[in-house]
Write a protein that binds this DNA or RNA. Structure first.
Lengths: 232, 232
DNA sequence: GTCTATACCAGGATAGAC
DNA sequence: GTCTATCCTGGTATAGAC
């Protein structure tokens, strides 16, 4: 369909490498990361965050000890503590970086579109594609939200509601133009969000069944549009 | 619609009180629970499981200490350990009981139905209704699955796949009869499951928005049927 | 059956040498 | 910037009195 993305080209465009993300994270957290040289900091942050994501996805944040993290990342306990102030602080670093990237990716993608139907397609595809690339990040963020310290917890909930609102607003705009049927937009937004989240929460299931992100995306879009789009 | 349940009557029929559940749990776990008298055991199990569910939902299983649990339940540490052998064992108790009840509830409900469309409606309603009553149980089970010890982890995944398969089989039966359109049943089953799970995972959101389980159920059914059901 | 007191260990965090 | 050695809290689990 017109304006549709494919995962392969999306991936190329967005340049979401771990290295780029860690560089950005370093520049935005000079107070927390007590290292001076950028190259050293970035190199080790990559090691630390990769290790942390692996371990957290395997056993959960609370059950990951910093000794585990030290072993997995190859850095000593002492060295770890020059990159973050406490275990909670590490969670904050991980969390904040993920949030920023997602919102930017989605807004970049839907920015160009005008027609509600295309806009909705792009929002959904962008969400699925980002979460495909950064799956461990999303998984962690979803699973650990309730364990976040107060402030982070609030931000995580806001982010969830923000992307949901984005969907709802597109639906409403389309309804006003008569492109979409007058369906409860709040509920539809909620269940779309649920379907998007299922993609990164049940990765094991979908990859076992050989469902690619493009296939899943096509299915979800078809499902939603056949319910929502008015006949021409 | 014909054969539809309402939550109020479902709740009355199924008798899913904490007391009944704990009694059953006690009778099935005489090896693990080192108490002789049924009445005492049931009374305290109710206290323990309620406290455990509250704490786990608030901070997660790993972060709940047994000292917390002792305080919240009103029993001493020593007493707690006569009801389960270890912290992991407590998780197993909680988990196994939930699983049994859900499957029984769903199978009871769809047992009577013949027509695929009614059967699908009943399966979805039963799932939503049970999870409405036992929300903390479902939430815990979903969130902690990956932390379960090997054997329990396997069972949790099997249970997820089992209820999903149940949906998929109903869809396929309907397709063979020509009642449903030839849609990818595996993918549809997966996203239906995702919508059902969203109901107990995001309870805060739905109750804030004053969406009742009957309303959610009606919406989801409408969404699915308008995609799936062939025109008459 | 239930409690209190305690053993014992793993975890987060840091000091100070290099 | 990084490492090793160590501190100390708070966790699970149990012994033994009542």
């Amino acid at each position: 369909m017109q304006g549709d993305l494919k995962f392969a080209s999306f991936k190329q465009d967005m340049n979401l490498t771990m290295e780029a993300l860690c560089r950005e994270l370093f520049l935005q957290n000079r107070e927390s990361v007590r290292i001076i040289k950028e190259e050293i900091a970035v190199k080790n942050l990559v090691k630390i965050l990769n290790a942390a994501l692996t371990l957290c996805n395997r056993k959960g944040f609370a059950s990951m000890s910093l000794r585990d993290l030290s072993k997995e990342s190859g850095l000593s306990m002492g060295a770890l503590y020059t990159y973050f102030a406490s275990k909670d602080d590490l969670l904050r670093l991980l969390q904040s970086q993920g949030r920023t990237v997602v919102l930017r990716a989605i807004e970049t993608q839907i920015g160009g579109a005008e027609h509600p139907r295309i806009k909705l397609r792009k929002a959904i595809q962008a969400h699925l594609y980002v979460s495909e690339i950064m799956q461990p990040w999303f998984y962690l963020s979803y699973m650990e939200t309730k364990n976040f310290p107060r402030e982070e917890h609030k931000k995580a909930i806001e982010a969830e509601l923000f992307t949901e609102k984005l969907l709802i607003d597109i639906i409403r705009a389309g309804q006003e133009k008569g492109v979409f049927k007058p369906i409860n937009s709040e509920l539809l937004g909620a269940v779309i969000k649920a379907m998007l989240q299922d993609w990164y929460l049940k990765r094991w299931k979908y990859s076992q069944r050989r469902v690619s992100v493009d296939k899943y995306s096509a299915f979800v879009l078809d499902f939603i549009e056949s319910y929502l789009v008015s006949e021409p």
